[in-house]
Computed example of a mutant assay.
Amino acid sequence: MSRTERQKMQAGEWYCCLDSELSVLRHQARTAVHQHNTAPPDPAENLSPPLAALFAARGENCLIEAPFHCAYGINITLGNNVYMNAGCTILDTAPVTIGDRTMLGPNVQIYCAQHHKDKDLRAKGLEIAHPVTLGSDVWIGGGAIILPGVAIGDGAIVGAGAVVTKDVVAGQTVTGNPARPRQV
Score class of each variant (00 low, 15 high):
163 V>S: 02
166 K>Q: 15
141 G>L: 02
52 A>I: 06
135 G>H: 03
166 K>M: 03
134 L>A: 01
78 L>A: 05
173 T>E: 04
158 V>A: 00
112 C>D: 06
149 G>R: 02
138 V>N: 01
10 Q>E: 15
99 G>M: 09
136 S>F: 00
84 M>V: 10
12 G>V: 02
142 G>Y: 07
83 Y>N: 08
4 T>Y: 05
136 S>T: 14
126 L>E: 14
44 A>K: 14
153 G>Y: 07
36 H>P: 05
19 D>S: 09
148 P>N: 09
177 N>T: 15
97 T>S: 15
17 C>L: 13
99 G>T: 08
129 A>L: 04
181 P>Y: 07
127 E>W: 05
89 T>F: 12
126 L>F: 15
32 A>N: 02
184 V>T: 14
150 V>N: 04
122 R>M: 11
168 V>R: 00
105 G>P: 02
85 N>G: 10
168 V>C: 08
131 P>R: 07
70 C>F: 03
92 D>M: 04
64 I>C: 07
177 N>M: 13
160 A>W: 03
48 S>M: 07
30 R>Q: 15
41 P>W: 14
69 H>A: 13
134 L>G: 02
151 A>D: 11
13 E>R: 12
176 G>M: 06
131 P>I: 03
63 L>E: 11
156 A>G: 05
156 A>Q: 04
162 A>S: 08
88 C>T: 13
100 D>Y: 12
95 P>I: 09
89 T>K: 12
81 N>K: 14
40 P>L: 13
69 H>E: 13
56 A>R: 14
63 L>I: 10
148 P>L: 05
92 D>P: 13
76 I>S: 01
172 Q>M: 15
25 L>P: 00
173 T>Q: 06
145 I>L: 15
62 C>L: 01
86 A>I: 11
159 G>Q: 04
21 E>C: 01
30 R>S: 13
113 A>Y: 04
172 Q>C: 14
119 K>S: 14
173 T>N: 05
80 N>K: 12
160 A>V: 07
101 R>Q: 13
29 A>N: 05
181 P>E: 12
150 V>L: 08
171 G>M: 07
153 G>D: 05
183 Q>G: 12
42 D>L: 15
85 N>Q: 12
178 P>M: 13
140 I>R: 04
182 R>D: 02
144 A>K: 03
98 I>A: 08
133 T>V: 15
102 T>K: 10
47 L>Y: 01
172 Q>I: 07
125 G>V: 03
166 K>A: 14
61 N>G: 11
52 A>G: 11
168 V>W: 06
123 A>Y: 05
88 C>I: 09
38 T>A: 10
139 W>A: 10
12 G>T: 02
164 V>A: 05
74 I>Q: 10
181 P>Q: 09
13 E>H: 10
91 L>G: 03
64 I>M: 11
91 L>C: 12
132 V>R: 00
99 G>L: 10
145 I>D: 04
